[in-house]
């Protein structure tokens, strides 16, 4: 399942930021962060238990259907009203949605939101999408050069590709080697002879905060 992959911050870091707060609400999310085992019900209870061990007595918990959808936020209102501080174990979207809703409450991120990726095997998640806003996977045989090449080269591989590995680390696969092999297997190496022009990064984060508006969905 493709998803936002996140990883919990260290308890030490979370505790440092909670200094001075009495009642704390740890809020999880049932979507991506549940799947990647960073902010679901189990992880929420684990963090709550760890905080209690560190001397925080007023810790309560809840898990929302989705923190990234305002429709589901009211379910948290009652507990949020009782808390001095909310630790969100959702991705950065959830943290912000809670901060926007609970203007009088201090909302802290409990996770580091890492990337768009998926599980390769139990306990291993890998990045596959950088949300560049204009997919070019048709040019590169379904291997993303933007996110999997360390230099986001559109005309790779660079001179640092050796034995299928990237120059930055022998553990990192060279995306362009993968692209080459894939296109070779498909008999489409001809695609690599064509120079790919500079990307229009205005569709990416570089163009400012992005918004998708769908009138067809709005009308329903």
């Amino acid at each position: 399942m493709g998803m936002i992959v996140a990883e919990r911050k260290s308890v030490d870091e979370i505790v440092r930021r909670l200094d001075g707060y009495g009642s704390i609400l740890v809020a999880g999310c049932s979507e991506c962060v549940t799947v990647c085992q960073a902010g679901g019900e189990k992880e929420v209870e684990v963090l709550a238990a760890l905080l209690r061990l560190r001397g925080f007595t007023g810790v309560v918990t809840d898990v929302l259907t989705r923190q990234c959808d305002v429709e589901f936020l009211p379910a948290l209102d009652e507990k949020a009203a009782q808390a001095d501080c909310i630790v969100s174990l959702a991705c950065g979207v959830g943290v912000q949605f809670l901060a926007e809703r609970y203007r009088e409450r201090w909302v802290l991120p409990g996770l580091n939101t890492k990337f768009g990726g998926g599980a390769r095997r139990p306990g291993v998640w890998e990045e596959r999408c950088g949300f560049c806003g204009e997919c070019v996977l048709h040019l590169t045989g379904g291997v993303c050069a933007i996110i999997r090449c360390s230099k986001s080269l559109l005309n790779g591989p660079c001179g640092g590709s050796q034995d299928g590995k990237c120059e930055i680390d022998a553990e990192v696969e060279c995306a362009w080697q993968l692209i080459y092999q894939r296109l070779q297997g498909l008999g489409r190496l001809d695609l690599l002879s064509e120079p790919i022009p500079p990307k229009d990064w205005s569709h990416a984060r570089d163009g400012g905060p992005r918004k998708v508006q769908r009138p067809d969905v709005m009308a329903v």
């Binding site: 360390s150 230099k151 080269l153 005309n155 660079c158």
Partner: peptide, 26 residues
């Protein structure tokens, strides 16, 4: 293209790669 910044003395920096070496030639 340029060596990746992971090699250098500012590994915490961002890289740009707005264009690549072939696009730069052009």
């Amino acid at each position: 293209s340029g060596d990746h910044q992971a090699f250098g003395n500012h590994p915490a920096s961002r890289n740009v790669f707005d264009v690549d070496s072939i696009q730069l030639i052009k």
